[in-house]
Write a protein that binds this DNA or RNA. Structure first.
Length: 423
RNA sequence: GGAGAGAUGGCAGAGUGGUCGAACGCGGCGGUCUUGAAAACCGUUAACUGUAACAGGUUCGGGGGUUCGAAUCCCUCUCUCUCCGCCA
């Protein structure tokens, strides 16, 4: 949610930002400005009237105390009149507030100035790349075949138990999941992120706080009996820890990491892109989240990108980092870097991490604030990124490192996995 | 699941219809004293909204109601605690 002050200050800036994001309903901006003015007008009228009623009520109290009943009754009659008007104003005011809010949440975040122009994923800009794409023999297999060959995962079993898109990992496959999760968490905590283990279900308010509601409702699993949602990412519970919190300046930045399974309905996805582990309904991910001072949030973003880059490098996977163009960014983000790793058997790039700065967009909604040395509060910035999502990392590890003798694992995983190869 | 108690400022905790946005204490901040510190003493210290700055408005778990006036009375929801039951 964009701060309302921005609409009062710089309408042009908002329109430019929305254009870059290819957002069409630009007329909403003027609706917001008008509604805000209306709201403030009503508020002023209401406050003035309320002030006179408050003053009169105090006088009534004083008259009663002195036993001046007549004067008290006189004032009562006066107040009764105002009360009718106030009742009406309150209704109008709350309508205006509701309308303002409902319109405000429809607008996406504004892109940072460094966001490239563009509408489609093809227009994303490659910032840099690293690692080497391996040359595989003709006998190379895609990960879903390797999974079967080494009995690492069974999708049809998951189908039986839950439904399509719910993989069952077993044996060395299950062990690899655990090894990766533990390695990722250790890597993150070593960089100062505090490990958390949050709930995997959240209430409506929480889902709303990070922006999953109202616009992505259909993408989450909903436990209707209890009004809970299964988390699509641990960003949701982690960031919401700081909902309605005023963080003292010296405690900034807040750095958190968590492992969680992620549940996504992926309504509307189908076709070849979803084979194997490319797109599933439940997957494992380790997330990093930061809450920061607005002044340094873009430095923080670069640090997070570099952190994730080192992690990907340590796994020896060929990767590239993209700066997303305006049209490909998420609703809530101001600047996003995507990490992709090259899947050598499928011969395509797969997204494994997305690192974003949301600026005040989430924090404004959640009222995450910081208090500076002068005691003033201001809205904080929130950032997050995957570090990392497992399925596509696993797909690449298997495909890129396949040999006739088995699948070689990167050095960093040996101690976590208990051996150096899947065989 | 059953029975009971409770939710007040950073913390602790008074306050049962009228200058209560809220006592006292602790903590925090500023000062006096001191070479410095401690102690003692004095002062100050909620959030949101709003204003150029005042003013004003809202907030005592959330929502609704009674009343000229609600932290205080009524309804309702949520949460916490204690006891019982069940249980990984």
């Amino acid at each position: 949610m964009l701060p309302i002050q921005l609409f009062r200050q710089d309408r042009e800036l908002i329109l430019q930002g929305l254009a870059k994001k290819h957002f069409r309903e630009t007329e909403l901006v003027d609706v917001i400005i008008e509604t805000d003015e209306k709201r403030r007008r009503l508020q002023l009228e209401h406050d003035n009237l309320a002030a006179s009623v408050n003053a009169a009520s105090k006088q009534i109290g004083m008259h009663m105390a002195k036993g001046e009943k007549d004067k008290a009754e006189e004032l009562k009659a006066q107040v009764a009149q105002h009360k009718e008007t106030i009742k009406d104003l309150v209704q109008q005011l709350s309508d205006a507030e509701q309308q303002l809010h409902d319109t405000l949440v429809k607008l996406p975040n504004l892109p940072h100035s460094s966001v490239p122009e563009g509408k489609t994923p093809e227009e994303n800009v490659i910032v840099r790349s690293g690692g080497e794409i391996p040359t595989l023999t003709e006998q190379k297999l895609p990960h879903w075949d390797l999974m079967t060959q080494y009995r690492l995962m069974d999708l049809s079993l998951g189908n039986k138990i839950a439904g399509s898109g719910f993989p069952v990992f077993m044996g060395q496959g299950a062990r690899l999941q655990r090894a990766l999760i533990q390695y990722f968490l250790d890597f993150n905590t070593a960089a100062g992120y505090v490990e958390h283990c949050p709930p995997f279900m959240v209430n409506e308010e929480t889902a709303y706080g990070t922006g999953q509601l109202p616009d992505k409702e259909g993408q989450m699993y909903h436990v209707t009996a209890d009004g809970l949602y299964l988390i699509p990412t641990s960003e949701v519970p982690l960031t919401n820890i700081y909902r309605d919190v005023i963080v003292p300046e010296q405690e900034m930045p807040v750095k958190m990491t968590a492992y969680s399974p992620c549940f996504r309905r992926e309504a509307g996805s189908y076709g070849k892109d979803v084979r194997g582990l490319n797109r599933v309904h439940q997957f494992d991910k380790v997330e990093i989240v930061q809450v920061t001072d607005p002044a340094g949030s873009y430095d923080t973003l670069e640090q997070m990108v570099s952190h994730v880059e080192k992690l990907v490098q340590s796994l020896g996977l060929p990767y590239r980092i993209l700066r997303l163009c305006g049209g490909d960014m998420s609703f809530t983000s101001a600047l996003t870097y995507d990490f992709e790793v090259f899947s050598a058997a499928q011969e395509r790039w797969l997204e494994v991490s997305s690192v974003s700065n949301f600026e005040t967009f989430q924090a404004n909604r959640m009222k995450i604030r910081l208090r500076d040395a002068q005691g003033k509060t201001q809205i904080a910035h929130t950032l997050n990124g995957s570090s990392l999502a497992l399925p596509r990392i696993v797909a690449c590890l298997l495909e890129n490192n396949q040999t006739p003798d088995g699948i070689k694992l990167p050095q960093v995983l040996h101690s976590y996995f208990g051996k150096d190869m899947i065989s």
